[in-house]
Amino acid sequence: MKSLIFTTAALAIVAGSAFAQTVRMGTEGAYPPYNFINDSGEVDGFERELGDELCARAELTCEWVKNDWDSIIPNLVSSNYDTIMAGMSITDERDEVIDFTQDYYPPTESAYVALSEGVDLEGGIVSAQTATIQAGYVAESGATLVEFATPEETIAAVRNGEADAVFADYDYLLPLVEESGGELMFVGEGVPLGGGVGMGLRESDTELRDKFDAAITSMKEDGSLNALLDKWFGEGVGTY
Rank of each mutant, 00 (worst) to 15 (best):
M1P: 06
K2I: 09
S3T: 14
S3V: 14
I5V: 15
I5C: 10
A10K: 15
L11N: 15
A12Y: 08
I13D: 15
V14F: 07
V14A: 13
A15H: 12
A15F: 07
S17C: 11
A18D: 14
A18K: 15
F19R: 15
F19P: 02
A20W: 03
A20G: 08
A20T: 08
V23R: 00
G26W: 02
G26V: 05
E28P: 09
E28Y: 12
A30M: 12
A30K: 13
P32V: 07
N35C: 09
I37T: 13
N38H: 06
D39Y: 07
V43M: 09
V43G: 05
D44N: 13
G45A: 10
E49K: 14
D52V: 11
E53L: 11
A56L: 07
R57M: 11
A58E: 03
A58D: 02
E59P: 03
V65D: 02
V65Y: 03
D68I: 13
D70W: 07
S71T: 15
S71G: 13
I73A: 08
S78N: 14
S79H: 14
T83W: 00
T83Y: 00
A86F: 03
G87E: 08
G87C: 10
D92N: 09
D99M: 05
P106G: 04
P107A: 09
T108A: 13
E109G: 08
S110A: 15
A111G: 04
A114Q: 00
S116N: 07
E117I: 04
E117V: 06
G118E: 05
V119P: 00
L121S: 06
E122Q: 15
E122S: 15
E122R: 13
E122V: 10
G124E: 08
G124M: 09
V126W: 02
A128P: 01
A128R: 00
Q129F: 07
Q129Y: 04
T130Q: 11
T130H: 05
A135P: 01
G136V: 05
G136F: 06
V138F: 03
V138H: 04
T144P: 03
V146I: 13
A149K: 12
A149M: 10
P151K: 03
E152L: 10
T154K: 01
I155P: 00
A157Y: 00
V158K: 00
V158Y: 00
R159N: 10
G161N: 10
G161C: 09
E162C: 09
E162H: 11
D164W: 01
A165V: 08
A165G: 08
V166F: 01
V166Q: 02
A168T: 12
L173E: 01
L176S: 04
L176R: 11
E178A: 14
E178G: 12
E179S: 15
G181Y: 06
G182N: 06
E183Y: 04
E183N: 08
E183I: 10
V187H: 03
G188R: 03
G190M: 12
G190E: 10
P192F: 02
V197Q: 02
G198I: 03
G200F: 00
L201G: 01
R202C: 06
E203V: 11
S204L: 05
S204M: 10
E207Y: 06
L208P: 01
K211W: 04
F212H: 06
I216A: 02
I216K: 02
M219I: 04
E221T: 11
E221H: 08
G223L: 11
G223D: 12
D230S: 13
E235A: 14
V237K: 04
T239C: 12
Y240L: 09
Y240T: 09
